[in-house]
């Protein structure tokens, strides 16, 4: 395994983008930081600037107003980066599929910017924190 891949797997800095979620996925993501789950064990760290991030955790189905900002954030993220669609809404807009104010799903919005974007899906409404961790692990072992 080359060093680039190894280090990428061992050090994942994530940046969290809410594109119109109901807050459940967001709370569970914050939960990952608290003592019960402590993702720093795996080298996962939340950072405050997309330029530092290796993974974008996107929640929500992508409303029209948020989609513009999501594209902007994706452009600012240093590549290579993985887009994680957290929750049913982000994966396929879930129950909001037919909403008039939706621009999603997330993979479509991201692929408008970069057709070769790496996108991983963690379904669930909301996914349990354990699921999120295992989703990240699976996405990484597929690299």
């Amino acid at each position: 395994m080359n060093w680039k891949l190894w280090s990428l797997k061992k050090s994942i800095w994530v940046f969290h983008v809410n594109t119109g979620a109901c807050n459940n996925c967001d709370i569970e993501i914050v939960n990952l930081l608290t003592p019960k789950f402590d993702v720093e064990r795996f080298g996962i760290k939340l950072v405050g600037s997309p330029r530092h991030a290796d993974a974008l955790l996107v929640t929500g189905g992508g409303t029209r107003q948020a989609a513009v900002r999501l594209r902007e954030v994706y452009r600012q993220t240093a590549k290579p980066c993985v887009v994680f669609c957290m929750g049913a809404c982000a994966c396929g807009m879930g129950i909001f599929e037919k909403g008039y104010h939706m621009a999603g799903p997330i993979d479509k919005i991201v692929k408008e910017v970069d057709p070769n974007a790496i996108i991983a899906y963690v379904p669930g409404c909301p996914p349990k924190p354990e699921t999120m961790i295992s989703g990240v692990v699976k996405a990484l072992s597929a690299l």
Binding site: H16, L33, V47, P50, T59, R69, Q76
Partner: peptide, 13 residues
């Protein structure tokens, strides 16, 4: 809007 709004303790937009 593009950079600042997102924060480790993420909230609604």
């Amino acid at each position: 809007l593009a950079v600042g709004p997102f924060h480790p303790l993420q909230e609604e937009m």
